[in-house]
Design a protein around this nucleic acid. Structure first.
Length: 776
RNA sequence: UGGCCCGUCGUCUAAUGGCAAGACCCCGCUCUUUGGAAGCGGUAAUGGUGGUUCGAAUCCACCCGGGCCAACCA
């Protein structure tokens, strides 16, 4: 299990970094509260599983808690059975919500009250337009919406209507409650979102108590707030919803510290069929046996197939967390399963597609048995089982070849192979029926090799599994592989899922033979069938008298699948996109701003002609009047226009979120002075950036700050020389590599010296001294 | 087409202005009574162009590519 320690150290992803920062700043005290909020309208799948691992995993790591909350706000789709199976799945994955099981439907009263509050503050209104009219009024992504004619209703009227909506006076669709925000907002979700709709439907938990139901954007954030959630983690497609999330909380009285939403990309697993929409038709068509068909990517399918929950947790860790979406290869999941199972599973022998072997030099009725290790030495676990042997054994049909391909290491006519743990045998004769089909192999055992050894030291090229015929158990073994064939290259051909079904995704070996030792094991034992893969008994069809085994995952092979593995390389190699090289251009938005404001246009021209700024810099500084005025204020303190412009462009503009520099923590004059200090060598540019950040956070004058922070440039060769010696003595190997030509390492040394002086050293002087010292 | 987000080996992630790292996949070798496991080695990346800087994957700009948003779903 050395691989586990090689996993990326936990806690480096951006969400955990955020939590760490919040813990450090004391934003929520020491509280960390996450939640997993499924809607009980379907079964959980791998994507959910990774989300569960994230949320519950964070709670464990940070000593916080994770709530399981059913987001059951839509009576049309939800039911108790889904809620039950979700709880089962979360528990099976190994997580525990303790007492923190919640239902959104328990909050309906509080949500209603909060909506009344919104109406009272003029932030919500009852709209009586038709669904169609509301849709139309919302506009499009490029055109603003138009206000509803009911937008101006009085608070009293809204209150009355909303109350009557709840009382059931209206039928479905007659009215809705809408937030009053901004019908021309660039974020479509902010164009007066619908908060409540009328739905006369029976809710699986609340019955007929309610006939109005809140919508996601209104309900979800309140659920988080009611439960004092700190970090509300969802997937990237909810990113646009964050603005509304914040709006609702801020306007329903939830002040900081309140919940905040963070989005991650979620899992996209190659070839996984998981959405309810995709699975349903497959079930109807009989392509899969149900929601738990082992070829599916639902949690219940994995459970049935035999995938251990630890493997799913390990997979989640392997995949990691980021904001950039992608598609994870199925190989990675298989790897995680094997990693867990290799350690867990006792080895056993099974023959899936048997062919009879008669050992002609053993007497009729020969009986013998072997004690065989259940684990290979490298797994390091104890265990033996007794395996009977006899004159006739089954071996795998594919372990014999009359026409062996190159590199074939199994049995051939006239060749030897080792029966695992038993004897080395030699194939003397091949028996076929009248159709030419192989029916039997006649072989001889080498009595000197009992136990499988070769006392004479000869190399036996292969070892194969076997099962003695007299004591073999009959079984059905189900072999699963990708449910879907790879997507066609031609994107025009948008095939139905059902047309992509791989006819070989389920192969049934109905004549399989197993060694008898498994008869005494618990039916939930997972095994490695040697050389074949990992298996366990199918919990639905295989727990009775009849033995039915599922292959959980095949063993990795570096031989038989050689040609299959080409698919890895054959995968669509999308061309890396690289646009034509283009000179930086003037942005349309700033261009427009200048066209509308002559003060900006005038400056755009003047900055170039009088100050000699590049067109790009002049453009960036004249997008808004605040920016231009800030720049000019800096120029009052220091007339080095080019330097100030570059500081403005690369450092200062980013300091304010919305580009309004009046919100920055220092004045233009202060910037000008700081740039002057850099210009005259008082402070290095590197150190000046720290000063700038400090000024932004807590104000102050540049001169004083430079002194206070001890950042006056150090260019004294003697002082720097000592630091350099120290750095070099700490990095002797790197110094050697540098002398041998790895010139890049100069950056490391300079960086270390800069760090040692907190940025005060003059990097040019340092570089000169270093090169001199290292002889280059 | 407007807004927001995202571009690092084939794939998933690190590097938070200072040696582009790990895992999966793939290739080779060692070892092997599993063509498994393990071990050793290898191939392989910062979308492009400019700018700022002693130094840029990282900061700035533009371009290119991808995603999300116009349900009374979540």
């Amino acid at each position: 299990m050395s691989k586990l320690s090689a996993l990326p150290s936990e806690g480096t992803d951006f969400i955990r970094q955020q939590i760490r920062a919040d813990l450090a700043s004391g934003r929520y005290g020491d509280r960390v509260v996450t939640r997993f909020p499924p809607e009980p309208n379907g079964y959980l799948h791998v994507g959910h599983a990774t989300a569960i691992c994230l949320n519950f995993g964070i709670a464990e790591e940070f000593n916080g808690r994770c709530h399981l909350r059913f987001d059951d706000t839509n009576p049309d789709k939800e039911n108790e059975e889904f809620a039950r199976s979700i709880k089962e799945d979360v528990r099976w994955l190994g997580f525990d919500w303790g007492e923190h099981l919640y239902y959104a439907s328990d909050y309906f009263e509080r949500m209603y009250d909060a909506a009344v509050g919104l109406i009272e503050r003029g932030l919500a209104y009852v709209d009586s337009e038709s669904l169609e009219a509301i849709r139309k009024g919302r506009g499009t992504v490029t055109e603003p919406g138009v206000p509803s004619p009911y937008r101006g209703r009085s608070v009293a009227e809204n209150l009355d209507l909303f109350e009557r909506m709840r009382a059931g006076e209206f039928s479905d669709g007659e009215h809705v409650l809408r937030g009053k925000i901004d019908m021309s907002h660039t974020n479509m979700l902010m164009r007066d979102p619908v908060l409540y709709r009328i739905r006369h439907a029976r809710h699986y938990r609340r019955g007929d108590e309610w006939c109005i139901y809140p919508l996601y954007d209104y309900a979800h954030c309140l659920e988080d707030a009611f439960e004092n959630v700190t970090h509300s983690i969802c997937t990237i497609e909810f990113e646009n919803n964050r603005e509304l999330y914040d709006w609702v909380l801020e306007n329903t009285g939830f002040q900081e510290p309140r919940p905040h939403q963070y989005e991650w990309a979620g899992l996209n697993l190659e070839n996984a069929v998981l959405s309810k929409r995709s699975i349903a038709p497959l079930v109807v068509a009989g392509v899969v046996s149900g929601w738990d068909d082992p070829r599916l990517a639902t949690i219940s399918a994995y459970r049935r197939r035999g995938v251990p929950p630890e493997a799913i947790r390990m997979f989640a860790r392997l995949v990691g967390v980021s904001r950039s979406g992608g598609r994870t290869e199925a190989d990675k999941f298989d790897h995680a399963i094997r990693e867990v199972l290799n350690f867990e599973c006792p080895r056993v022998m099974a023959v899936l597609d048997p062919i009879r072997v008669v050992l002609t030099n053993l007497p009729e009725g020969h009986e013998e048995s072997f004690e065989i290790q259940s684990f290979p030495d490298d797994v390091g676990r104890e265990g033996f089982r007794t395996v009977p042997f006899g004159r006739e054994v089954w071996i795998e049909r594919s372990d014999f070849s009359e026409d062996p391909p190159r590199g074939f290491r199994r049995l051939v006519l006239g060749g030897e192979v080792r029966l695992r743990g038993a004897y080395v045998i030699r194939c003397e004769e091949v028996v076929k029926d009248d159709k030419g089909v192989l029916t039997e192999l006649r072989c001889t055992v080498d009595a000197a090799t009992r136990g499988g050894g070769s006392p004479d030291g000869r190399k036996v090229r292969g070892t194969i599994q076997w099962v003695a015929i007299d004591s073999a158990l009959d079984a059905e073994v189900r072999l699963f592989s990708e449910l879907l064939k790879p997507l066609d290259q031609d994107p025009e051909e948008d095939k139905e899922l059902i047309e992509r079904v791989n006819p070989d995704s389920l192969v049934v070996a109905s004549e399989a033979k197993l060694e008898p030792s498994i008869g005494s094991d618990s039916p939930e034992t997972r095994y490695q069938f040697e050389r074949a893969g990992y298996f366990w008994r199918d919990p639905v069809d295989g727990l009775g008298e009849r033995l039915v085994f599922n292959r959980i995952v095949a063993l990795k092979s570096t031989f038989s699948t050689k040609s299959d593995r080409r698919r890895a390389r054959a995968r669509a190699l999308e061309e890396k996109t690289s646009g034509p090289s283009v000179r930086p251009q003037i942005s349309a938005a700033r261009q427009t701003a200048r066209e509308e404001d002559p003060r900006l246009e005038e400056r755009f021209i003047r900055y170039q002609s009088s100050y000699g700024l590049s067109t790009e810099s002049a453009d960036l500084l004249t997008g808004s009047i605040q920016t231009a005025l800030f720049f000019e204020a800096a120029m009052d303190a220091n007339d080095d226009a080019t330097s100030i412009a570059s500081w403005m462009v690369t450092e200062v503009r980013g300091l304010s979120e919305d580009g309004d520099l009046s919100k920055v923590g220092f004045t233009g004059e202060a910037l000008g002075r700081l740039v002057e200090l850099v210009g005259d060598g008082t402070v290095s540019r590197r150190a000046a950036k720290d000063v700038l950040l400090r000024m932004n956070e807590s104000g102050g004058e540049p001169d004083a700050l430079v002194r206070e922070m001890g950042l006056e440039t150090v260019s004294d060769t003697e002082a720097l020389g000592m630091i350099i010696e120290e750095v070099l003595s700490l990095h002797p190997e790197e110094a050697e590599e540098y002398r041998e030509g790895k010139g890049k390492l100069i950056g490391l040394f300079i960086g270390e010296v800069m760090k040692a002086t907190r940025g005060a050293a003059d990097p040019k002087v340092v570089e000169g001294l270093l090169r001199e010292r290292l002889g280059s």
